[in-house]
């Protein structure tokens, strides 16, 4: 058996989503997973606080969500593919999230791309 990953591996400044992260972020990801259904997207848009409470988010997790702090949600165990569903509801596309992770504006981020029209 060859170990595939160093303990608490970080690659290119990023955490690797492993079982430890997944357990830590379970509530966040379960909430985001529900957003694959239209009625849950409506429920989230209608009353975000009640929606977060229904998925037992902790106070810290709720605060990250209220601030639309995507790097913070990732650090709390959010998985990027589940956060993308949250992005749809909160009108934060992947590239907006990415700009935030890079500490740039959306425009700054786009200016670094080879073909910024391929959004």
């Amino acid at each position: 058996m060859i170990q595939q990953l160093e303990r608490d591996a970080r690659v290119a400044g990023s955490d690797v989503f492993d079982l430890s992260t997944s357990w830590r972020g379970y509530r966040i990801n379960k909430m985001c997973n529900a957003l694959s259904q239209a009625q849950n997207r409506d429920a989230c848009a209608r009353d975000e606080e009640a929606f977060m409470a229904a998925y037992s988010l902790t106070d810290d997790e709720k605060e990250l969500m209220r601030k639309r702090d995507f790097p913070g949600l990732l650090a709390a165990g959010g998985n990027i593919y589940f956060l993308i569903k949250l992005g749809v509801v909160t009108r934060n596309g992947l590239y907006h999230m990415g700009a935030q992770m890079r500490g740039e504006s959306y425009e700054q981020f786009l200016s670094t791309r080879n073909q910024r029209e391929a959004v």
Binding site: A12, G13, S14, L94, M97, A99, M101, R102, R113
Partner: peptide, 10 residues
């Protein structure tokens, strides 16, 4: 591709 962290988009 890299979709997380400060090197998003690398």
């Amino acid at each position: 591709h890299q979709l997380t962290g400060t090197e998003f988009g690398a």
